[in-house]
Amino acid sequence: MIGINLLGLLVLVLFVVLLIVFIAIGDRWPVSFRKIRGYEALLKALERAVESGERVHLSLGTGSLIGTDSAAAFAGLVVLTEIAKVTSLSDRPVVVSTGDGAMAIVAQDTLRSAYREAGALDRYEPISARMLGPTPFSYAANIPILLESERVSANVLLGAFGAEGALAADFGERKQTFVMAGTEDIQSQALLYAVAEYPLIGEEVFAGGAYLDVSPAHRASLRVQDTVRFIIVGGILIGLLLNLLGISL
């Protein structure tokens, strides 16, 4: 039909169908993950923070909730649910920061849900999720004060970052805290790779839910990504072969 982006619609349907199928299959088809240093070390850092009465800081970046770069922050919110549950009974529960007001509200809701699920709703404080500054560098400028005053020992940066993400990670490294950082922007990923001890590259940013065992749907999500990736790689190889044979489509 004229005007309908049929290919786009088909790809969307493919994603939805695969997601539903893999959720239905669930653990009947066991999953094996490759090692991602950051997530492995994160679990240990969370345990250390809880035992030593220090705080975990999760940054959701400086991107807007309705911006095109919000997906990484949504991945950060998934990780937040797990961090909030693990740290809910510690003396110093997780603190969340963002550069966007709407994202701060969403982070507060996520925190409240996680505390309710952990049976620790009385420990929820709305100011645990906060906006640090409305511009990227005003956000970064507030990070050292937050790390110092909240006695942070684990710093997780998962969200939309520009160059200020590298500054935020560097402030964490200077305080000798655990720093795991990931974003969707490829140039910022390069900066974070240089600065953070545990950088997340590419799709690793979105794998937190599966690696931290948030729900079977997150493990299914990884399978969907891998399946579509194989289809894309297959398409590229077929295209390459046809090109070598001099056949143009």
């Binding site: 997601l19 997906a71 490829i186 749907a217 999500s221 990504q225 990736r229």
Partner: peptide, 16 residues
């Protein structure tokens, strides 16, 4: 290659 991974992750995160 990295962008393909990010795009796939973004789509699935949005769909969830």
């Amino acid at each position: 290659g990295i962008l393909i991974g990010v795009a796939l992750g973004s789509v699935v995160t949005g769909l969830r």
